[in-house]
Simulated scan of single mutants.
Amino acid sequence: MSEAIVRINENFWNIRGIFKIAGLLNVGTQASLVKLPSGNFIFLDSYSLTPEMQRDIFALTEGGNRVEAILNLHPFHTLHCDGMASLFPHAKVYGSTRHKHCCPQIHWQEATVESNKVSELYSDVLDFSQPRGVDYISDNGNVHFSSLLAYHKPSGVIHVDDTLTYFNWPAPLSWILPKPKISFHPTLAKALEKRPGAAGDFSGWAQELGERWSAAAVVCAAHSDSTAITPGSFPKKISSALDRVSGTLAKHRDKYG
C-alpha cells in the first residue's frame, strides 16, 4: 500500500495514503474526492496530500477553489484534519464532537458530520449510514470500530473507515494468510454498547446496510485496501461477515441480553 490517487469513475477519486503502526507496519489510510453535480467537490475524510497529489487535485478543482466541504467521517481519524483544512481554507469543515475537541484550531461547522443536516446537503449523490448497537465515539481510545459510512450513489462506491475491512496483504504474507474478505473490524466486541439488545441492533443494521447498498460495485476501506465487487453481491458479503462474528454477538447476548 502506497500513496496514490485512484480514479474510480469520472466523479469519484479514492486517495490511498500511508499509516504506519509503530512506524513499521503500513496499514494504510484513505480519503476520497467527490465531484458534485454543481461542479464543486467535497472530500470524504482528510489526508496530508503529497506535492504530486496536491498538483493533481488542484488541477481538478481550479486550484482548490471548487472544494466546498471536507467531511471527516471517523471520530478517531484526526491526524490529517489540520493540514487538509489549511490547504483548502474556503471549504466548510465538518466532523464529530471528537474532531472538534481534538482539533479546536479548525473552524468547524456547527452541525456534526453525522447529523441529518449534512446528510440532506448531499443526499443527491451520497447516502450515509451510522452503525447501530456500537459506540460511535468509544471511551476506549483503542477502539476505532464505528464510523460514518458513505455510499456514492452514481458510482456504487462505498467509502468506509475501520467498520469494514478488506486486507489484501502483500507477499509474502499473502502466501500464508487467508484470502482477503470484506469483514468487520476486529474491535467489534469492545465497541458493542453494554446494554441489552445491542448485538441485535448491530446485526439488524448490518443486514439493512447490505440490502440498502446492494448495488455497490466498489468498497474503499481505510486501513486495508479497495476492492471491486459484483453489483448485487454486497448483501451476501455482509451476511458472511456477520457469520464470522456470530460468536462475538452471541457472547454479548449471553452477557447483556
Rank of each mutant, 00 (worst) to 15 (best):
K190Q: 13
I106T: 04
G133W: 05
A228C: 08
S123K: 15
F41V: 05
D127T: 11
C81R: 07
S119L: 12
I158S: 06
L149E: 11
V245Y: 00
G17R: 02
A189T: 00
K251M: 00
Y47C: 01
R195I: 08
L25Y: 10
A241Y: 00
C103M: 12
G83P: 01
L79M: 14
H99Q: 10
C103H: 12
A31R: 03
L173R: 09
S147W: 08
Q105P: 02
D127F: 01
H74C: 03
M84W: 01
G197R: 07
F202Q: 00
N9A: 13
H90S: 11
A222Y: 03
A217F: 03
V113W: 09
S115K: 10
P196E: 15
L209T: 07
S138I: 07
G63T: 03
R16H: 10
I8K: 11
D243W: 00
L149A: 14
P37D: 03
G232W: 05
S146D: 13
S46F: 06
D124A: 11
G39I: 04
G141V: 06
G210E: 01
F12Y: 13
G17S: 08
M53A: 11
A191W: 04
Y136N: 05
K35Q: 14
F19P: 07
A216H: 01
L209P: 02
F41Q: 02
A4Y: 09
A4P: 05
A171V: 06
Q207P: 00
H223V: 11
H152V: 04
H223D: 10
D225P: 02
K179I: 06
T187P: 00
H101Y: 15
P186T: 08
S155P: 03
R55Y: 06
V113H: 10
F58A: 07
D243C: 00
A206H: 00
P89M: 01
W213P: 11
P235W: 02
H99K: 11
G63D: 08
L33D: 02
D45G: 06
G257N: 14
G83K: 07
D225Y: 07
D243A: 00
P180S: 12
K194N: 11
Q207E: 10
